[in-house]
């Protein structure tokens, strides 16, 4: 593919802090290479702003190789931009043409309050994990891995769920601001394995309770989360979460700690 440079107009959400009202600001960037990632384009813009003595735009990023889940940007109406199974750092500027206007917003959900500009507070996810996304492991020598037989299909499904990076794109894309895809991935990858068995029932009950407490919406099976998930987490997991939840009710062992 041919390399090219482009000039772009960016409409970016600027917000001082959690309490102040935000607004869009327009920026122009010149000579952006088609080989840059979307975040590198933001680096160019920020350097330009610093050189002009203005405040740079705050945005989250860390690994820049598509595995950490930090780069939360809602680009032209799409979580992490228009590419399938992609985080913002892996979105490249060859998606855009010279003269394009790009609107960049933060994840919008009351459970993800804006800290500054495009940076949102996702600690609500951490609290859901704390409520049940763990297993009991005895201290001492590690158990031999081959001592626990796990069939291939279960292992595969568990691994597929475990690829969730907790980026919050599911919440951002969901018209209900629901976190069900995230919670279902975290419940699934442990529920499918023998290591997750001791807390299996308590886990799903406590995580759903925390999810409701944090102010995430309910799932109406629309599927926008699955379409936007950079890791391709399947809606299948939400069905499993519902099944686990109903099952936990029928057994008396699911109790709060």
């Amino acid at each position: 593919m041919e390399h090219y440079n482009m000039n772009l107009t960016l409409k970016v959400w600027k917000q001082k802090n959690k309490n102040e009202k935000g607004r869009f600001e327009t920026f122009n960037v010149k000579n952006i290479s088609s080989e840059m990632s979307f975040l590198e384009m933001f680096d160019v813009l920020n350097e330009q702003l610093v050189a002009e003595g203005k405040e740079p735009i705050a945005f989250d990023h860390d690994c820049r190789e598509g595995i950490c889940g930090m780069c939360s940007m809602y680009i032209n109406g799409r979580a992490h931009g228009p590419w399938h199974h992609t985080t913002t750092c892996q979105l490249h500027m060859r998606e855009y043409k010279d003269g394009d206007t790009i609107v960049v917003e933060p994840w919008r959900a009351n459970a993800f309050p804006v800290i500054k500009d495009l940076v949102v507070d996702r600690t609500s996810f951490d609290r859901i994990i704390q409520a049940g996304g763990y297993i009991s492991v005895n201290t001492g020598n590690a158990v031999d891995a081959n001592a626990l037989p796990i069939d291939k299909q279960r292992a595969d499904e568990s691994f597929a769920a475990a690829t969730c990076i907790g980026c919050g794109a599911c919440v951002a894309a969901c018209p209900n601001a629901s976190a069900m895809l995230f919670v279902s991935a975290k419940v699934s990858h442990l529920a499918l394995l023998p290591q997750g068995e001791p807390e299996r029932k308590m886990r799903v009950v406590n995580m759903i309770e925390q999810m409701d407490k944090e102010g995430f919406g309910s799932c109406t099976n629309i599927g926008a989360c699955e379409a936007e998930c950079p890791k391709g987490i399947s809606l299948e997991n939400i069905a499993r979460l519902n099944r686990e939840y109903i099952g936990a009710t029928f057994s008396g062992s699911a109790q709060h700690e």
């Binding site: 409409k11 935000g22 869009f24 809602y74 032209n76 109406g77 799409r78 979580a79 228009p82 609107v103 917003e105 919008r108 959900a109 009351n110 459970a111 894309a173 209900n176 601001a177 102010g215 995430f216 919406g217 599927g223 926008a224 379409a227 936007e228």
Partner: peptide, 14 residues
């Protein structure tokens, strides 16, 4: 649960 709504939405794409 979403007080500030998106300026651009995905619509039928997702």
């Amino acid at each position: 649960l979403r007080n500030v709504r998106y300026a651009v939405s995905a619509g039928n794409k997702t």
